[in-house]
């Protein structure tokens, strides 16, 4: 089927429009809050400090406090301060973020030898990749085993249930002591953050496999390892794939702590550092990049899933 034929399909078009709308709506809200002064703007940006000793040009003050100071200055016959309504520093306007986004990729880093934004990003992606890969290599087989064999589940799951509540970042120092200061401990944090959830989720998915399917296979002569590889695994594969897509998203949330462990690096370290100096335009730009990468990956994986699992009907319903 040609792409054009696909697009003219009205159902698809409607879906695409809704998809775009789901992005445009929040953007619209954000723009309204940013550009229409009376909607929120709880602060006043000082333009003329007047007679108030601590006011500086560009300072953000609570509106009430500003009015207080104006009244006080009037009473004391001091020069009146002036200002315009503004949003708090942590809510930059869309155009500021767009600009930060653009410059982030086009302007070389000021510091010699410092990584470009896209290099930081690439570094982060590699951390995620390795962390998720290692976690999956352990977690997926364990999950399938726990989901298939009750004995195995009873042996492993209580501990995993317990361990998954332990905060992954707390293992940072230990990870550094064992794996050094570079990417090792970061990857380890991603693994610790993902693995335990992964085992439980995949075990659950495995358990949800239709019992009749396994029984049918057994009556046809499948047993032991073959039952696992020829029936259980293919049977859960589309759901497993979906789980993995969700878990990959979780792995990203651990990145922000992982990148503060050992030497500082990567995109989320950039976010932390920029937030510390209150450059929220850069912070949001970087957050958006992560969003785009994450969402993009998921779209691609989703499309790939439809090709890989033509029999999976859960996908049609979305």
């Amino acid at each position: 089927m040609s792409l054009i034929a696909k697009l003219t399909d009205s159902e698809t078009r409607k879906r695409a429009l809704l998809g775009i709308g789901s992005f445009l709506l929040p953007l619209l809200v954000w723009s309204l809050v940013s550009y229409v002064p009376f909607i929120w703007h709880p602060k006043v940006e000082v333009t003329v400090p007047g007679g108030v000793d601590y006011f500086q040009v560009g300072m953000l003050v609570d509106r009430v406090q500003f009015e207080d100071e104006v009244a006080y200055a009037r009473e004391q016959h001091l020069a009146l301060p002036a200002g315009k309504p503004a949003n708090p520093i942590y809510l930059p306007a869309p155009h500021e973020v767009a600009k930060a986004f653009y410059t982030g990729f086009t302007k070389p880093p000021v510091q010699k030898d410092a990584p470009w934004l896209h290099e930081s990003l690439w570094h982060s992606i590699q951390i995620i990749f390795w962390g998720f890969l290692i976690s999956s290599l352990i977690g997926v087989p364990l999950g399938i085993l726990a989901g298939t064999y009750t004995t195995f589940a009873r042996l492993s799951e209580p501990f995993i249930e317990y361990f998954r509540y332990l905060p992954a970042p707390a293992f940072g120092a230990l990870a550094v002591a064992i794996l050094g200061i570079y990417d090792g401990p970061k990857i380890a944090i991603i693994v610790i953050g993902t693995l335990f959830q992964q085992v439980l989720i995949i075990a659950n998915t495995t358990r949800k496999l239709e019992a009749t399917i396994i029984e049918a296979a057994r009556t046809l002569g499948a047993r032991g390892v073959k039952l696992l590889t020829k029936v259980v695994v293919p049977g859960i594969l589309p759901d497993l794939y979906r789980d993995q897509r969700i878990l990959l998203g979780w792995a990203w949330t651990y990145l922000i702590v992982a990148e503060l462990i050992g030497t500082s690096s990567g995109i989320t370290f950039y976010i932390t550092q920029q937030a510390r100096y209150q450059h929220f335009d850069n912070v949001y730009a970087a957050i958006m990049i992560i969003g785009i990468i994450g969402f993009g990956t998921d779209l691609i994986l989703g499309g790939l899933g439809r090709r890989l699992f033509p029999w999976d009907r859960a996908q049609d319903r979305r």
């Binding site: 239709e210 029984e215 009556t219 594969l237 589309p238």
Partner: peptide
């Protein structure tokens, strides 16, 4: 041989492969 009431075919296999499953096992 057993035939179940519910949905017991292997959804990831084509009809032919479903039937081939037993002999191959």
């Amino acid at each position: 041989g057993m035939v179940f009431q519910g949905y017991s075919l292997f959804p990831w296999l084509t009809v032919k492969k479903n039937v081939m499953f037993g002999p191959q096992m």
